[in-house]
Design a protein around this nucleic acid. Structure first.
Ligand code: FES
Ligand code: FES
Lengths: 144, 144
DNA sequence: TTTATTTCGGATAAATTTATCCTATATATA
DNA sequence: TATATATAGGATAAATTTATCCGAAATAAA
């Protein structure tokens, strides 16, 4: 469904959100350990998230990755996915036609639309805060 | 969402269904032309579909690929997807955890479940006959 | 039985995604 | 300013997916 890069990006963002809420910055090393991902690859993904304004980075001693405390509640899953995989997951044709639209639909277009809309809604209506809260409460997990 | 192999497999199956309804067998060459896919790669996917019993093949002169006329209405999209990509699309964890279940869920598990169930329902309730009909009537297209 | 036809299947190759490594660049602090 | 610390980013490598090629095996028809 999502690329590995995107999976890591989402999990990393959640972990950063949890720490930023406590005023702590985190390193790629700490992130990779927490989400069980390859460190260097994760670092690359973090760069993409920084470039897209989803998270902030601070270089140098006592640096690390963080998210503005007051943005944790506003960052949506869709922003993370978009920063890494783009919007192809809900804009591309499910059967690979060059364009996906009503005037030249593939055989599954209308049925797929329902699934894609459901997915888009879900991604656009889920915030980092919500996901971070689930981890904090022990209701969900970032690895294994 | 789906692999290229799966996209080709679905489109190929629809084209075969259309022709089988008229008692005609089709070659990988004709299929690849109709669905705008690489011929040799498409042939490999057809082999997988044959192995999984989704379509039949007949070797030799006047051979080709076909689907039993009375099976066209019973073959579901889910069978094609399963034959090629397996069931990972709705059984794997959306964030890549080793297992996806209620007792050790990832942060998006419950929200993802809705999307995955919607997708599964769609694939399990869509038959080749229905998709072939849409192509025949000109309501949908297999390429471009 | 011979020939033409057509799928099967193994071996490769190309492209993309995933992953690693190393150096440059920036920053806090002593 | 010097030093230690940390992210940025380029160059590569490994793994997976996508794609190609070609000979083997099967089959229909002459
Ligand atoms: S045209 Fe295929 S999903 Fe819209
Ligand atoms: S555990 Fe992640 S989707 Fe179920």
């Amino acid at each position: 469904m999502f690329s590995k890069a995107c999976e890591y990006g989402i999990k990393a963002s959640i972990f950063i959100a949890i720490n930023s809420a406590e005023g702590k910055r985190v390193s790629p090393k700490a992130i990779a350990k927490e989400i069980a991902s390859p460190e260097a690859f994760t670092a690359k993904i973090l760069q993409a998230l920084v470039k897209n304004g989803v998270i902030n980075s601070v270089k140098g001693a006592h640096g690390g990755f963080e998210i503005n405390k007051n943005e944790i509640a506003t960052v949506k899953l869709s922003q993370i996915v978009n920063a890494i995989d783009g919007d192809k997951i809900y804009s591309n044709c499910g059967l690979g036609l060059h364009t996906c639209d009503e005037i030249h639909p593939c055989p599954v277009h209308h049925k797929f639309k329902i699934v894609k809309d459901e997915l888009r809604d879900m991604l656009e209506n889920t915030t980092l805060e919500e996901l971070a809260q689930n981890i904090k409460s022990g209701a969900s997990f970032l690895k294994m």
